[in-house]
C-alpha cells in the first residue's frame, strides 16, 4: 500500500517542517537532553564496573532463580478471580513495561549469545 503522489508531497512538506522545528529546539531544552544522555551513558559505565566484581555465573543464576520462583507462584498460589482482577488492573497501570522488555532482551541473549549472557550489561 504505497501512498498516492499528493500524499507523498504532503509527507515531504510535513517532514521539512518537523525537521525545522526539531533543529530549532530551544538551547535550554537541548542542554537538558544532553544531560539526560550523559546520565544514561554514565549509568552504563557504573554498572559495568560493578559487574566486573561479581562472580561470573551470579547474574545468570539470579535470573534462573527469579524465573523459577515466578513459575511456582503462578502455578500454585490460591488466586481468586477478584485478586486476579486487581492484578490485571495493577499490571495495566504499572510503572513501566520493564518485564516485557526484559523478557525480549533475555530471549535475544539466549538466542544470540548463549555462552556469554552473563557478561552483557
Amino acid at each position: 500500500m504505497s501512498l498516492p503522489s499528493e500524499d507523498r508531497d504532503f509527507e515531504k512538506h510535513a517532514k521539512r517542517l518537523l525537521d525545522d522545528s526539531t533543529d530549532n529546539l530551544p538551547a535550554a531544552l537541548q542542554s537538558r537532553l544532553t544531560q539526560a544522555r550523559h546520565r544514561a551513558l554514565e549509568q552504563k559505565s557504573k554498572t559495568s564496573r560493578w559487574r566486573a566484581w561479581l562472580p561470573q555465573p551470579v547474574p545468570g543464576l539470579a535470573l534462573a532463580g527469579g524465573l523459577a520462583l515466578a513459575l511456582v507462584f503462578t502455578l500454585y498460589s490460591p488466586t481468586q478471580s477478584e485478586n486476579r482482577l486487581d492484578d490485571l488492573d495493577l499490571l495495566a497501570t504499572t510503572d513501566q513495561l520493564e518485564l516485557y522488555e526484559d523478557l525480549e532482551f533475555y530471549a535475544w541473549l539466549a538466542e544470540e549469545h548463549p555462552a556469554e549472557s552473563y557478561e552483557t550489561g
Binding site: 544522555r37 544514561a40 549509568q43 522488555e101 550489561g121
Partner: peptide
C-alpha cells in the same frame, strides 16, 4: 535512553 543503554 537509560533503558536502551542498559539493555541494547
Amino acid at each position: 535512553m537509560m533503558a536502551f543503554v542498559k539493555r541494547y
